[in-house]
Design a binder for these strands. Structure first.
Lengths: 250, 250
DNA sequence: TAGTGGTCTAGACCACGAC
DNA sequence: TCGTGGTCTAGACCACTAT
């Protein structure tokens, strides 16, 4: 939370004293952290300040707070890997390359039974199915196979993926989506390998996503990347100093 | 932040009013959000309460706050994919299967030049190099190729990876590490394919990690999984309600 | 200078859990 | 009942930005 580090605040002073105790082993996972009252007495601050200090430690995952019980040093955390999943077009252009797209399929059709179940729609509901091949300076880099529920995302049928990607369109309409994601290594089938201009024995990285917003399934996408041309990279968390890299106003 | 939802707090009331305005399109990304002063007047709360409301929106990534300027609706975010990276042993045992490990290499040797550079140590520094094959109910599932700086992680040379994984040992010693991670699809080389009992043409998912703690590089690991037997799965963000699933005290 | 957010105080009432 | 954390008030001073 604290970005400006010119003069350490009382809150950060308290925070750091507890983190130091953890680093030094004086406080081990599961141990009871000082209570707000204790910190008030020890540091001569108001309770709000002590509260803030403990709360920020809690937000960063260092302690667990339980009303009526106390604060406790959190157990060691599994590594949480965070990766930004960007629009393929932005990603390519950020590298200074040229993005082109080719629509290989585009139809509105009835959902199959598993699709209807994934989208939680009626069995005779219509879904947009699109297959788009994305190229970076001419070289195939992503084969996008996507289903969208047109009633959840009005206007999606009119989108021209060569001009605006489905990803960008959906992000504009639903700025804060959520969903699930699975990454795996696969051998492409013959048709996909041909599309991606891959020789035999060339694997792919496959990213599958289900995107939800407002309680509805918006889209299910299967993105296939030639292994040699794409990786998923990210960091695992610095528990302190989360989410501070927001961009400034427009 | 708010876990108990029995009675909505004033803070959440303010929060929700802004989120509702965003959802309704009354506030678009880049727009100025109500100032603390404005919220004080509109909701009849103290400034601290308005401050908390805006701060929690900021922590969840919905708004950006700039001192001396104001609060602004954040631009739509790239999807942030979060995956928990677990100890392979825990993962296997969570599935109710049996984990076994076989040490294929274990030596303390001088760092190569690129290794010394990755670890930021002297060129003649010693590193522990270990190769461990992990099996799930007998089937190879992970080939772990790991370098550790034994001066950064004392005791690591004595670890028996068949009993305690390096991951678990390092997590115990450094509960809150950070690092980088890259996931890709690869074809294993012949030796790795043999170790993993893979036929020709069988791809692998490869996870590479650099783990740091206390400003030092602890370990560099390359984990190779048969594609058919492992995926990386996770969710992308629910911006609200972060990190609330801490486990209770010991 | 005026408006913004960052921090802090010294109280208060409440909900919850343990005893 | 007592101690815990959750929330809130009505002020205050400060740092920063824009004008």
């Amino acid at each position: 939370m604290s970005i400006a580090l010119n003069r350490p605040s009382r809150r950060d002073e308290i925070r750091d004293s507890i983190l130091a105790a953890v680093a030094a082993g004086a406080l081990a996972p599961g141990d009871r952290a000082p209570s707000e009252h204790e910190l008030v007495a020890r540091f001569g601050v108001s309770r709000m300040t002590a509260h803030h200090a403990l709360n920020s430690l809690s937000a960063d995952g260092y302690i667990t707070r339980v009303q009526g019980v106390g604060s406790f040093i959190a157990p060691p955390r599994a590594h949480v890997f965070e990766a930004k999943l960007l629009d393929i077009k932005d990603e390519i252009e950020a590298r200074g390359h040229r993005h082109t797209a080719e629509v290989l399929a585009h139809e509105v059709r009835c959902a199959s039974l598993p699709e209807a179940s994934a989208f939680a729609v009626a069995a005779d509901a219509k879904l947009l199915h699109a297959v788009v091949l994305h190229r970076e300076d001419g070289a195939p880099i992503q084969l996008e196979d996507r289903l969208v529920d047109p009633t959840a995302a009005p206007g999606v049928v009119e989108v021209d993926p060569c001009k605006e990607s489905y990803f960008a369109f959906l992000m504009a309409a639903f700025p804060y989506p959520e969903g699930d994601c699975v990454i795996r290594a696969v051998m492409p089938d013959l048709a996909a390998a041909r599309r991606l201009e891959l020789g035999p024995g060339q694997p792919c990285l496959q990213v599958e996503r289900v995107t939800r917003a407002g309680g509805r399934v918006l889209t299910v996408a299967r993105l296939l990347y030639p292994a040699a041309r794409h990786v998923v990279s990210g960091a695992f968390v610095p528990p302190a100093g989360h989410r501070q890299d927001r961009t400034p106003p427009a």
